[in-house]
Structure formats: structure tokens, C-alpha cells
Computed example of a mutant assay.
Amino acid sequence: MKKLAIIGCGGIGRYHLDHFLQFRDIELAGFCDIILERAEAFAKAAGSGQGFTDYKEMYDAVQPDMVFICIPPYAHGDIEFETIRRRIPFFVEKPVALSLDLAHEIRQRIQEAGLITASGFQCRYSNLVEPTVEFIQDHEIVFIDCVRVGGIPGTEWWKKRALSGGQIVEQTIHQFDIIRYVFGEPDTVFTMGTKGYVTDVDGYDTEDLTTTVVRFQNGALAAISTGCYASAGASADSKVTFGARDSRADLYILDKLRVFEEKQAAVEDSSLVVKGDGAMNGKGTTDTVYRQEGDSGLLCDRTFIDAVLSGDPSKIRSPYEDAVRSLAFTLACNESLDTGLPVKVNLD
């Protein structure tokens, strides 16, 4: 039976552990965290394995066949290099780094070692992906409108952009990634941000809200807005809208997809617009709804484990190499935010 280890026994590590506890064909052999009690708590929950505070010591003792790296964004680097040196296939949580140079170096070493890798973009494994792709293939998408608005996560490091990357890189990278996955590659981004609305969180220095304009390689445009200023769910309707000339698809990630397909009629009798001015309303449209089924995170984890067990990585939807491109997309937004200039996205 293949042995699995986890580095990082915090919230995201527990998310993966809950999945592993449903599997019967792997041995949960090692758990590592800078706080030993957390690692030991994972071993107790698993009913197997041992807790460690040093990942090299764990590697020596356990000799794992695969590892899940569930560490904060600022902690990437040495762990990946040592894991690659030991030729251990690994799954790494997003964002895979905060430096594109570091991510490129890790990517290069992975390629040289020929390792199986995956990253934590579980949204790619949703059953909503296929109908979204079908809609995009059947319609010429002109505009993508994306909103993700929430509050500030409870982890201490998240509040510092130097440690987390800020909301674009640490959280909304899921939206940037799924847009890349179902639609296509970005060419250029221009990002603006604002602060001053979050005033009750000590040590907080990232943007409260950002809006990014994206030009894709095929010429389409997107507006991606994300904020952490909200105190209630009524603050915003978080979704991704793919808009064509005669229809649209609203993707509520890991929840539902709503497709509106009939042509909309010109407004004839509204006193608020000039007759024939091109305004449209939604009367007469059809609304087809697809619902999320199952746990896409479970499928994401299972796919990586199956790839290691079989030696066939072909079903992994987000290997490390591709995760680096989503990182590049979001880091370009941060560069634009800091410079006030449009930035070309480096996908190489």
C-alpha cells in the first residue's frame, strides 16, 4: 500500500485529510507541522502515522510515496526542492509561490525529475466545467464579468500582502484559474485598487477592493473585481458571467451554472430609454440551470492519488506547470496594481 504524507496541518490540510479518510487504498503515514500538537492531532484522526515538526525527518522516517504540501504562500521553496530531490510526487496548494522566478525554478526541476504533480484547483473538477465549456464553444464570448467579494480570512498571515499575495493571488486565483481553464489565455491586465474601507483589522495592509481589466489573446475583454470588505453575503453576487451577443452563462463556482440562451428583445415601451437606442431587456429568455454534484475537492485529490498509484498523470487537470500560469496571471495584476501600468502576462 502506498504511503501518503502531509506537510501543513492547518485548515487546508484538514480539508484534504477529510478526503483521505474516505480512501482505503493508501496509508496515511506522516504528518508534519511547525506545531507538533497539530500534526499529532492529524495522526490521531487518521488512526495511523506519526507527527513531526521537521519535514526532512519525516521523509527519512516515513519514506512516503506521495505528499500533499499544504503550507502558506510565503513558505514555498525549500520544501518543494527537497521533495523533488527525493523524487516524491507531490500535490501543492495554491498559490504555488509568491515569486514567478521561484515557481519557474521549481517547475524546471520537476520537469528534469519527471515527477507527477498536481495543484489545488479543485474547481476544475466540478461537473459544471463541461456545460460551461460547451456554452463557450457554441457562442462567441465577447465579455467576461467576474465578481468575488467576501471578508478577511482568520489566518494571521493572510492580512499581509507580502505573506499572502493579497486577495487576487491567495483567494481569487480560483476565479482567474477557472476562466483560463474554460475560456483561454490572458494577454494583458490593468488593475486598480482601493483601501480605507476595512478599518477594524489590526496589521491589515492589503487592498479592500481591486478591479482588473483583462484582454485575452483572442481579443475578448474581462472585468474581474474582488474584495474582502464585506460583512454579509448580501454585499455582492459572486459569479463569473460569460457574455455572448445573444446569450450568457452565469457560473456560480461549485454551486450552479445558469444559461440564458434566447435573443433579448429591444426595449420599446420604457420611459427611461429612447426608443430604438439599442437597449435590451431579458423578456422571453430561457433559463437552464445546472447544479453542482458531489465534492470536486474529493475528486481533485483522488485524481492525483490515482495518478501516483497507476503512474498515469493524464487525468490531472492542474499539474504544477499549468498552475504556474495561473500564478503568472495573478502576479501580473499585482504588478499592475503597484505600478499603475498595464502589464503583459508572462505565461512562459
Rank of each mutant, 00 (worst) to 15 (best):
residue 140 E to I: 08
residue 236 A to G: 01
residue 41 A to T: 10
residue 348 D to F: 14
residue 46 A to H: 02
residue 99 S to L: 08
residue 75 A to K: 10
residue 52 F to A: 05
residue 344 K to L: 12
residue 185 E to P: 11
residue 6 I to T: 11
residue 197 Y to K: 12
residue 238 S to K: 00
residue 286 T to V: 09
residue 268 E to N: 07
residue 274 V to H: 00
residue 244 A to C: 03
residue 105 E to S: 05
residue 171 Q to A: 13
residue 200 D to V: 09
residue 8 G to K: 04
residue 197 Y to F: 12
residue 35 I to F: 15
residue 256 K to G: 03
residue 192 M to R: 14
residue 131 P to E: 00
residue 110 I to V: 15
residue 320 Y to M: 10
residue 180 R to A: 02
residue 268 E to D: 11
residue 201 V to D: 13
residue 71 I to V: 14
residue 168 I to C: 10
residue 163 L to M: 15
residue 298 L to A: 01
residue 164 S to A: 11
residue 143 F to H: 03
residue 154 G to E: 14
residue 110 I to N: 01
residue 26 I to A: 00
residue 10 G to N: 10
residue 214 V to W: 05
residue 288 T to S: 02
residue 231 S to C: 10
residue 330 T to N: 09
residue 110 I to R: 03
residue 146 C to F: 02
residue 19 H to F: 09
residue 150 G to C: 12
residue 31 F to M: 08
residue 170 E to Y: 14
residue 172 T to R: 01
residue 4 L to W: 12
residue 177 D to C: 09
residue 191 T to S: 12
residue 48 S to A: 13
residue 242 F to P: 02
residue 109 R to H: 13
residue 207 E to M: 15
residue 265 A to E: 15
residue 225 S to C: 05
residue 147 V to W: 04
residue 255 D to A: 01
residue 311 G to R: 03
residue 118 A to F: 08
residue 50 Q to A: 14
residue 47 G to R: 02
residue 71 I to R: 00
residue 194 T to Y: 08
residue 297 G to E: 03
residue 235 S to C: 12
residue 157 W to P: 11
residue 51 G to A: 11
residue 104 H to L: 14
residue 216 F to T: 07
residue 137 Q to I: 06
residue 254 L to R: 01
residue 10 G to M: 11
residue 254 L to Q: 00
residue 139 H to T: 03
residue 272 L to S: 01
residue 63 Q to R: 06
residue 8 G to W: 13
residue 218 N to S: 07
residue 335 E to R: 14
residue 47 G to C: 06
residue 305 I to A: 00
residue 280 M to I: 08
residue 139 H to P: 07
residue 36 L to E: 08
residue 133 V to K: 07
residue 313 P to F: 04
residue 242 F to W: 00
residue 66 M to R: 01
residue 205 D to G: 10
residue 288 T to W: 08
residue 32 C to H: 06
residue 281 N to C: 04
residue 17 L to E: 07
residue 228 C to Y: 10
residue 36 L to V: 12
residue 237 D to K: 00
residue 198 V to S: 07
residue 153 P to N: 11
residue 225 S to H: 01
residue 83 T to M: 09
residue 60 D to K: 06
residue 32 C to I: 11
residue 170 E to L: 09
residue 36 L to S: 07
residue 226 T to G: 08
residue 83 T to R: 06
residue 159 K to V: 12
residue 50 Q to C: 10
residue 187 D to V: 07
residue 245 R to E: 05
residue 31 F to Y: 13
residue 26 I to N: 03
residue 317 R to L: 13
residue 337 L to Y: 12
residue 181 Y to P: 01
residue 204 Y to K: 06
residue 182 V to R: 01
residue 208 D to F: 15
residue 295 D to C: 07
residue 345 V to Q: 06
residue 214 V to H: 00
residue 43 A to C: 09
residue 15 Y to V: 13
residue 38 R to L: 14
residue 333 C to E: 13
residue 203 G to R: 09
residue 205 D to E: 15
residue 212 T to V: 12
residue 116 I to H: 05
residue 108 Q to M: 14
residue 71 I to W: 09
residue 165 G to P: 12
residue 272 L to C: 04
residue 68 F to K: 02
residue 192 M to A: 11
residue 254 L to H: 00
residue 66 M to L: 13
residue 96 V to H: 05
residue 160 K to T: 09
residue 279 A to M: 03
residue 116 I to A: 03
residue 169 V to C: 09
residue 137 Q to Y: 04
residue 40 E to L: 08
residue 172 T to S: 12
residue 44 K to Y: 09
residue 150 G to A: 09
residue 65 D to K: 02
residue 103 A to H: 07
residue 174 H to V: 11
residue 159 K to F: 13
residue 314 S to F: 05
residue 298 L to N: 03
